[in-house]
Structures are given as structure tokens and as C-alpha cells.
Write a protein that binds this DNA or RNA. Structure first.
Length: 197
DNA sequence: GTATGGATCTTCT
DNA sequence: GAAGATCCATACA
């Protein structure tokens, strides 16, 4: 709690292969207003595979994915849930990292006010949950992760670089076999345990 | 504790 | 008109 926030990750951080960024984001933190959490679970999406929205090409919906790196891509899924992604790779390439789960770090009271009287581990253990807890809505689509309302920060000094497990992605039907899900090993805050050790 | 089905809206064909 | 990267409540063992 006393941890002074490090400077936000620069746009260059996201200007790399999306799988590298997805792995590097494990242990980083996301903040929005009073609320913040440590990223413990991510998935990579790239225009070269069918599960990615950008697979179909540039549309009005996916334009953000093809934009410059270091920008938030927020969209609605199943008509109900907002999903937070970080756009990666150079402008013109459709790729993003989906933030699937957080370890709550700050503003837990505000999270409960938004979500209800839930246990800590239920506040951000899912892509649709964490956006509600952090108050992230569709209006934040295309906002900068470097100097916008939602920011991502490098791991605090006390965070030991965790072992990262790789797994298949969740909840998709196409290209489901790609090992593009990255999680912090032995974390208790995941949306779902790793399939195989 | 595990399993199944419903809710709800934006975007694209 | 249909599909989609989900979450929650309810039913049953």
C-alpha cells in the first residue's frame, strides 16, 4: 500500500511481439483511480490466428487493435462484460494482450462497493469482473495506458520475478490450442487453475 | 462441489 | 439475423 507507483510502462514496452508482452506483464500492476491490482493472468491475441478479433481485418470495432501500442482496447463481450486489453506491436499490426485476472492491490473497499460484498479472490478473478471492480468501461477504449486514466506499472521492487506457466486460452473455439495464456505460477488469484502442471 | 443454462448488447454478414 | 475472448444463479449428487 505504501508502494509509491513507479512510472507507467512506456509505449515502447508494448512495441514487441505480443506473446513477449503478455509474459512480461505478469507481475506488473494496473491502476485506475483509487483501485489497482497486480496482473497474474494474461492471454495474447494476434491477427494471424482466428480467435483474435483482428483476424477478420480492420473494421470499426477492431481499429483500435491496429492502432499504436500502449493503448487500451476495451470491448463488450456477450453483451454484458467489458474486457480490458493492451494493444501491442507496431501500428498497423492487430495484436493485444487480454488481462484476465488481477490480484487486488488497492481500493478494495471501492471494488466491493461496485461488485458487492465478495471475498478478495472473487473481486478480480475473471476478465469481466476486474473491469467492473476497477470501474473500467467502454468509454476507456482507445485511451492511453501511458498517460491516460488507466495505467500499467512495472513490478514493485518487492515483487520477485515469478515463474510463469503457459497454458491454452480459455473460452474460445478457434485456435484454442495455442499456448498463449500466461499465468503467475501458484497464484491464488487466477480465473481458473492451469490445466496441466 | 460440480454441472448446466440463461441473460444481454455490439458488431458484422 | 447470428455469433461472441463471460458471469451468475440454480439444480443436483
Amino acid at each position: 500500500m505504501d508502494a509509491q507507483p513507479a512510472p507507467p510502462l512506456p509505449a515502447a514496452f508494448y512495441d514487441r511481439p505480443v506473446t513477449e508482452v503478455a509474459r512480461a506483464l505478469i507481475g506488473c500492476s494496473v491502476s485506475h483511480g483509487e483501485t489497482a491490482g497486480v496482473i497474474v493472468e494474461t492471454e495474447a491475441y494476434h491477427q494471424s490466428e482466428a480467435a483474435c478479433h483482428a483476424y477478420v481485418g480492420v473494421t470499426r470495432r477492431t481499429a483500435t487493435l491496429f492502432g499504436p501500442p500502449g493503448v487500451a482496447y476495451v470491448y463488450r463481450s456477450y453483451g454484458i462484460h467489458a474486457m480490458l486489453n493492451a494493444v501491442c506491436e507496431p501500428e498497423g499490426v492487430g495484436a493485444a494482450v487480454l488481462i484476465r485476472a488481477l490480484q487486488p492491490l488497492a481500493g478494495l473497499g471501492l471494488m466491493r462497493a461496485r461488485r458487492g460484498p465478495l471475498a478478495d479472490r472473487q473481486l478480480c478473478s475473471g476478465p469481466g469482473k476486474l473491469t467492473i471492480s476497477l470501474g473500467i468501461g467502454l468509454d476507456l477504449n482507445q485511451s492511453s495506458l501511458v498517460d491516460g486514466p488507466v495505467q500499467m506499472h512495472a513490478p514493485s521492487a518487492s515483487w520477485r520475478e515469478p515463474a510463469v506457466d503457459v497454458d491454452r486460452r480459455i473460452g474460445i473455439t478457434k485456435a484454442a490450442e495455442l499456448p498463449w495464456r500466461f499465468v503467475a505460477r501458484n497464484s491464488a488469484w487466477l480465473s481458473r487453475p492451469v490445466a496441466r502442471a
